[in-house]
């Protein structure tokens, strides 16, 4: 029964992870950037929620549009001003650039909010649903539902709207997209904005569940990367499955004896995936393939 409980809450945790990772995946797939500042962008979302909650007492879930909108703007500006300059240069430059950006963001967060660990608690934080001896807090269920809804909305956006089609075209082949009259720079800016907005939303969801501090971003970036690798770049369904797998594995490791090794799970998975299935379990890696050619 305990194991079932652990697995179930791992699945719910997977929703949050999927939201983090899909933002990372959109940015990587469309702009080719591995955004090492992704974790810090998630934290910005979390701090927006924390700040609004402590200042006005508003329910943390209601702050989601604010953090998502704020990070959308931030992402668009970032792509326009900074990332567009290195988009065609070597991979090292983009890694180093986003690492430098990450240091700057961490420092800003440290100055604004100090290094203290923060958490958001609601009056209904401990209220839970009980089914046949299994206990699940409503917060976790709500986080899972919102994360899935966001993913579904993104899927609809990508498959039904003109902008969504343009984004997918640029991800597959920027040059061909440009010849069709698509404004590639604008599309990349929008895609970066969407990825950042998902990071902001994930930050809000994370704030409702966990405590955080300005330095917890690095682990979040790596987890996003692991999930994208496992699910396959550009595959949204793959990302959800991979996120659930990671959530369950982490919960099993920490629930059954070794809580300190919780984060090590994702790194071990990272190395294992890279060595055995570098294209992910679902192998939908055509975007990266197109770029490699």
């Amino acid at each position: 029964m305990l194991t079932l409980q652990i697995v179930l809450s791992g699945i719910l945790l997977g929703g949050l992870y999927a939201c983090m990772a899909i933002g990372f995946s959109v940015i990587w797939g469309v702009t080719g950037l591995i955004n090492l500042a992704h974790g810090s962008m998630i934290l910005i979302g979390a701090y927006v929620t924390w700040w609004l909650h402590t200042a006005t007492g508003v329910d943390p879930f209601l702050t989601l549009p604010v953090s998502a909108a704020l990070l959308f703007g931030f992402g668009v500006a970032l792509q326009r001003v900074l990332m567009e300059r290195v988009i065609r240069s070597s991979l090292l430059m983009t890694l180093v650039l986003t690492f430098g950006l990450n240091l700057l963001l961490v420092n800003i967060l440290l100055q604004l909010f100090s290094a203290d660990v923060r958490a958001v608690t609601m009056p209904y934080s401990s209220a839970s649903l009980e089914i046949g001896g299994l206990r699940l807090t409503w917060t976790r269920i709500l986080v899972f539902a919102i994360a899935l809804a966001l993913t579904a909305a993104l899927h609809l956006f990508m498959s039904r709207t003109r902008t969504g089609h343009a984004i997918r075209a640029v991800a597959q082949n920027p040059r061909a997209a440009a010849t069709l009259g698509i404004d590639v720079r604008r599309v990349r800016a929008v895609a970066f904005g969407i990825g950042a907005a998902l990071a902001g939303a994930a930050g809000t969801l994370m704030a409702a569940l966990y405590s955080f501090s300005p330095i917890s971003g690095e682990v979040l970036t790596l987890k996003s990367f692991v999930i994208v690798l496992l699910g396959g770049l550009g595959s949204m369904g793959g990302a959800i499955v991979a996120a659930v797998v990671l959530g369950v594995c982490e919960n099993l490791v920490s629930g059954l004896g070794a809580p300190g090794l919780r984060d090590a799970v994702s790194f071990a998975m990272l190395l294992a995936i890279l060595l055995t299935r570098p294209r992910g379990l679902f192998g939908a890696n055509h975007a990266a393939d197109a770029r490699a050619r």
Partner: peptide
Amino acid sequence: LGAMGLLI
């Protein structure tokens, strides 16, 4: 930290 980031 931020100055280092900006320098980078």
